[in-house]
Design a protein around this nucleic acid. Structure first.
Ligand SMILES: NC(=O)c1ccc[n+]([C@@H]2O[C@H](COP(=O)([O-])OP(=O)(O)OC[C@H]3O[C@@H](n4cnc5c(N)ncnc54)[C@H](O)[C@@H]3O)[C@@H](O)[C@H]2O)c1
Ligand SMILES: NC(=O)c1ccc[n+]([C@@H]2O[C@H](COP(=O)([O-])OP(=O)(O)OC[C@H]3O[C@@H](n4cnc5c(N)ncnc54)[C@H](O)[C@@H]3O)[C@@H](O)[C@H]2O)c1
Lengths: 256, 256
DNA sequence: AGGCGCTTGTGAAGACACGCACAAATCGCG
DNA sequence: CGCGATTTGTGCGTGTCTTCACAAGCGCCT
């Protein structure tokens, strides 16, 4: 099947660069490569060149090669990468060799959507439990899972080996929920509430904030508009500000 | 020394360097500062120090000061920043001086949650229209908006001055929807479908992929587990791999 | 009026990330 | 069996981002 050799390290028969210290930027891209690879595998591709995979993942091919080289080099020069092998490689590094259990806290508007999302299951995760604080929601069944009261967190987390929690409560409750998750042994949190969480060392938090994404887009809209208004000039020639706000483009004007 | 304007003219609290070229990293943080500032304003704070704001936004204070300095310096030494003024400043730079209209395409599981989300309205946006391709969904009313057929996009987009689109369709339809949005004049897209979109120059795309976030967390879980298994050693001493996968920690093993 | 403590704004250095460009490796074919 | 076509892996220059550390500025208190 596999003759795994790896340049970097001296030849250790059978040994592999266990968990190389990957740059964060690389880690953030690996899931994208993985998704692209699964697509390729489904469409019958057995190998893929760095160029091909890079364009499927929307990145520069040199960057992709460097990323992959960090996990020990599994390509063949003149040929490319073995799709199936690379999938295994990346899944291993990402810790997806077993399905991880996730707890979802806050089964409201957003929580319902997440609970019914099949993208969890198809990409290495299992929603193991749903929690809410609202008594009228507890007991409700969603997608085969019963909503439990958040007080049951510690017991259930231990029972189901849950190490990842998703927070989909209002911002006001998020910190409290985070504390409860941590107390229950969770060491990774995905936070949808628009607020910063403080957690002990050793606990990772990632945040998804829809409004922030839109505001970043808004900035670029604003800039595009002001650029078309000032065709050439590198200089700045706008005006005013708060309490006398400037407008750079008719389209930018408020109202009507 | 600021290469913008004013070699020392704090006498002009109204004038400002129009649209400075902000580093992308800074742009990505401004929304977070903005949110923190609104919280501060609501709790009665009139001024805030870089330290205070930084901790509220979860960043290093030097970074925050440098970020703010890019927008032209509005702090007072020995005192801090004027909260209200800074809010106006940031909102101006982000192009939030008027409410931007957003089109949401794909009113399924996730789309419903987004359509009902009030975080849009409170942070500078307005969902101006909902679209879907499924005839049985068209006509449905959500939160006061009627779902329209996606073919109506061009007309509605023009009518409502929509420049930002949100894609919440299955991945298979996302590229097609993106093309339709672009054709309708949209120049910024927020994509929830797990796929890369290709768009013309001048159109910005941001992507939110829940599974990617979880996989990044998974990586760190994996690493934490392997670190506790190998207390000290900086070296690597794991085993096997795909087709003979290694396990670093009992907890990491697949549930019997 | 002057000094003192606090806070900003920024220079400089280091860390990190990116992408080019090319040598080294592999395959297929004549 | 050797050669050319192809593609990887990576050294290196470049640019961006982060962080430290401190002088300059500001308000307050005496
Ligand atoms: N709806 C969206 O599309 C959307 C999009 C982006 C972000 N968000 C954010 O996600 C979060 C949830 O949004 P939503 O629209 O689902 O709100 P929601 O009010 O519909 O749901 C919140 C749920 O959390 C539960 N809850 C409250 N306090 C709790 C606690 N202490 N422990 C456990 N559960 C608790 C509530 O009972 C409720 O069921 C909010 O922070 C929101 O800003 C929502
Ligand atoms: N549900 C979640 O919590 C969640 C989370 C993260 C990402 N996502 C992603 O968001 C997307 C939507 O997820 P969902 O669960 O809402 O799916 P869904 O199937 O419930 O909804 C998709 C909707 O898109 C509509 N649609 C299909 N093709 C269309 C087209 N060409 N034009 C316009 N509308 C079209 C469908 O009619 C349907 O209403 C998917 O790509 C999914 O991977 C979903």
């Amino acid at each position: 099947m596999s003759q795994h050799r790896h340049p970097g390290a001296p030849d250790r028969p059978g040994a592999v660069p266990a968990l190389p210290d990957l740059p964060e930027a690389t880690v953030a891209r690996l899931p994208e490569y993985l998704r692209a690879l699964h697509n390729l595998a489904e469409t019958g591709h057995e190998t893929v060149s760095s160029e091909g995979l890079a364009s499927a993942a929307g990145v520069n091919s040199a960057k992709l090669r460097k990323d992959l080289s960090h996990l020990g080099s599994y390509g063949t020069r003149g040929v490319g990468y073995d799709v199936a092998l690379l999938i295994d490689q990346i899944e291993y590094v990402l810790g997806l060799t077993h399905r991880r259990s996730v707890a979802l806290v806050g089964v409201g508007n957003l929580g319902h959507a997440l609970a019914g999302y099949d993208g969890f299951a198809t990409r290495g995760f299992r929603i193991a439990a749903l929690f809410d604080a609202d008594p009228s929601r507890v007991g409700e069944e969603i997608n085969g899972l019963v909503v439990r009261h958040v007080d049951e967190l510690p017991g259930v987390a231990a029972e189901e080996s849950i190490a990842i929690g998703v927070i989909a409560t209002p911002a006001a409750a998020a910190q409290r929920v985070a504390d409860q998750l941590v107390a229950a042994g969770v060491t990774s949190i995905l936070n949808f509430a628009p607020c910063v969480l403080s957690v002990p060392d050793g606990v990772d938090v990632r945040k998804v904030d829809l409004a922030i994404e839109l505001q970043i887009l808004s900035f670029h809209e604003h800039r595009k508009a002001s650029l078309t208004a000032l065709p050439a000039t590198g200089g700045s020639t706008l005006t005013a500000l708060p309490g006398g706000l400037a407008v750079t483009d008719p389209q930018e004007a408020i109202g009507t």
